[in-house]
């Protein structure tokens, strides 16, 4: 079935060292167009590093990252910019610019990369805010809105340029269960409605089983398991089982995942 699908991102033999510490060890995976791909793993497993390597935020030690035919790891600055315009990213801390209003934050990529009239930019920004349920908050500053709303503004900003791919770094971290469900539903809706490819890094198991089409489980920088929800749920690997069940006893030691 997967052979019929087009590959959106292909990570080949990714290795990342921080000094003498190997954070990612020969990770290879393909992410298909239109799917919600979850990168799962405990703290320090390398999942956020993998995400940042895919977005070009961190240079890799060895390996390659392909967006279609374009190789991000060897691209020139101009090519990197073109690739980056094809994706959006929602950050764990929302990463909204404090000195801009909600609407200005969402319109930032549009004003920087297009020559659209400011009125058109404003209309598009308001449409995106509408999509995440934040109409009426355009003139608020990030400090005036809640954590969940910030995440949604970050999401609106990530989709402002109508990207092909959206990366989400811990989209539900620090949110209450109801807001978590709202953000999950948003990810599902946006992915389907806008025909996006979504790559989500999280360790919130409820979210994972709610939104994921496929899941990659990372442990100590290695890809331990890759498959759909049922593959992960029924995995025979005791590490995966301990993690998804959140058990204290098992092969994962607290110091390992901390």
């Amino acid at each position: 079935m997967n052979k019929e699908k087009k590959i959106a991102i292909s990570a080949k033999n990714i290795v990342k060292d921080f000094g003498s510490l190997r954070v990612l060890n020969d990770v290879t995976l393909d992410i298909y167009k239109g799917e919600i791909f979850v990168i799962l793993g405990g703290s320090g497993s390398g999942k956020s590093t993998l995400l940042r390597i895919m977005t070009g935020g961190i240079p890799l030690t060895s390996g390659k990252v392909f967006f279609g035919d374009a190789d991000l790891s060897t691209a020139s600055d101009d090519e990197k910019e073109k690739i980056k315009r094809r994706f959006g990213m929602s950050f764990q801390s929302s990463a909204l610019l404090d000195f801009l209003t909600v609407e200005e934050n969402v319109s930032l990529p549009l004003t920087e990369h297009t020559k659209l009239d400011s009125k058109v930019v404003s209309i598009i920004s308001r449409m995106k805010l509408n999509l995440v349920g934040l109409q009426g908050f355009e003139n608020y500053t990030p400090s005036q809105i809640s954590g969940g709303m910030k995440k949604r503004v970050g999401l609106a900003r990530a989709i402002a340029m109508d990207p092909e791919i959206v990366f989400y770094d811990e989209p539900t971290a620090g949110l209450d269960p109801v807001v978590c469900a709202v953000v999950d539903q948003l990810i599902l809706d946006l992915t389907k409605k806008l025909n996006l490819t979504s790559i989500v890094v999280t360790h919130n198991m409820e979210s994972v089983f709610r939104i994921a089409d496929r899941i990659a489980f990372l442990y100590k920088g290695k890809l331990l398991e890759l498959g759909d929800k049922n593959t992960i749920r029924n995995s025979s690997n005791p590490i995966v089982q301990q993690f998804i069940k959140g058990e204290i006893e098992g092969p994962i030691q607290i110091n390992d995942s901390d």
Binding site: R52, T55, G56, G57, K80, E81, K84, R85, F87, G88, M89, F91, Q92, S93, A95, L96, L97, D98, L108, P109, E112, H113, R157, F167
Partner: peptide, 11 residues
Amino acid sequence: EQLEALDTMAI
């Protein structure tokens, strides 16, 4: 992460 956000937006 705001600098990283700018960089990710190709700004």
